[in-house]
Write a protein that binds this DNA or RNA. Structure first.
Lengths: 244, 244
DNA sequence: AGGTTTGATTATTTCGAAAATCCGCAGTAA
DNA sequence: TTACTGCGGATTTTCGAAATAATCAAACCT
């Protein structure tokens, strides 16, 4: 049991994967742009094979799409996709909440409170613009995961996590414009309370609203970014996205 | 608008992907087997890079799991995974059915009947052992897809399709032993009738039972194939979410 | 003897060049 | 003009070898 702890020992592909994911979510790589290998090779300082590896994994996460043998593309954003994504997330999250409340134990409750506390403390420390911090995003993700971690379904959790990551990009697009995140603080606390009180129906409804209201916020403040022509880009004109 | 204009132009990686998927589903590559590159390179007659490409995509489909920097593994099967998979499929399929019935048009109804007819005719032609045929499996898959094709949610359909593929491997494991598929014929017809009649609740229940009964059948006849050692707590580890 | 380190062996990951493919454009014919 | 065909440049995909990491076993220390 010598090396159970190796957070530093990461593969090069894993490193590039993480950097590209971050760049895509932060829109440093804009939605819809073509990903040319030569350009990426300079940008991330790796070879073709390593890039291909990272690209393949990002395709699996839905952040990159493969265009046959015509290369790769940053997954486009659209109003349609955002709404669809939201509906699927609500379906999955409601089920996760239900199962977690049915199956969760004391340890699970404690983990939720710990995750909330960490997120809450960092919020206080960072002040008004916490929602721009990558560190807060991580704790926010961990909090929502802790709520459903006890659901007992690895398959559901994996699906949920992928959807969460994709939604994260949309959230980020709006948060850089106008922060309407103030109300989210209390919402998180309310959700935690109802979950730990094992009030399934109310907890589900709160999470449902939590997700849908965030989506509406994004649509209100950032939808101009993905109305096909609007986004300015330094490289090429965005291709009209194939309908299906 | 026809984007189905390239059936011949396939990449080498795509070809290997298809062959490996087929071999995994048919259990020619047994669950839990370590996939050594050198072996695979001889078996499929391609190079490391091409293999890696195919492997990556199979990981995305859940038919192969990656073990850090310790190579790849055919995704193990277990009673736990089968039950979990079934529950998630029921959740997703019920929602798909509901949405499709809400949103489907005449064209959708016609497509369902066409898909059923093709499946039904092939069944008659092949006789008693139709369920072993790859061609029938394709038509069966197409029939179930046609039922939900009008649901209007690309994200949900993509998730559904991946789950369907994984379940296919389990179905195949039992069908090679003892065929209990006789009743499925009438079930398919009943489901089609209730869907086209827009009887949402009944259609959902029928599909629900259709899936769960198949799972029970698999457990009854093939579970001895995946009772490897103890409980499957060491199976399928996706991305560890960085807590800190 | 038990447990740990060292070193050889095996397997995976990464690399950059070579082959295959795609895209745009010019030239030709209807 | 409009549509078809064949070249030239650019991009992706594939290849096999070299570098990196993991595995196993024998030797070493306690």
């Amino acid at each position: 049991m010598g090396n159970t702890l190796k957070p530093a020992g990461e593969t090069r592909a894993g490193d590039v994967l993480a950097r590209m994911r971050s760049d895509i979510i932060s829109c440093a790589l804009k939605p819809g742009t073509k990903l040319r290998f030569e350009t990426l090779r300079e940008l991330y300082e790796v070879s073709f094979s390593t890039l291909r590896e990272a690209l393949s994994r990002l395709v699996a996460e839905g952040l990159v799409v493969a265009e046959g043998q015509r290369g790769f593309l940053v997954a486009p954003v659209s109003l349609f996709d955002l709404n669809d994504l939201t509906d699927v997330r609500v379906l999955v999250e409601r089920q996760c909440i239900k199962l977690a409340i049915d199956r969760g134990d004391d340890r699970w409750e404690a983990d939720i409170m710990a995750a909330f506390h960490r997120m809450d403390r960092l919020q206080s420390r960072l002040g008004a613009s916490y929602y721009l911090s990558d560190e807060w995003a991580t704790l926010h993700s961990a909090f929502h995961l802790s709520l459903v971690a006890a659901c007992g379904s690895p398959n559901l959790l994996e699906i949920r996590q992928k959807l969460f990551e994709r939604a994260h990009r949309y959230r980020r697009m709006s948060s850089q414009f106008r922060p309407q995140w103030r109300a989210k603080d209390v919402e998180h606390k309310m959700i935690m309370d109802r979950v730990i009180a094992r009030d399934t129906a109310t907890a589900q409804d709160l999470v449902d609203r939590h997700i849908r209201e965030t989506t509406e916020n994004v649509i209100a403040h950032a939808s101009h970014l993905f109305a096909q022509g609007g986004a300015g880009d330094a490289f090429r004109r965005p291709d009209p996205v194939a309908a299906e």
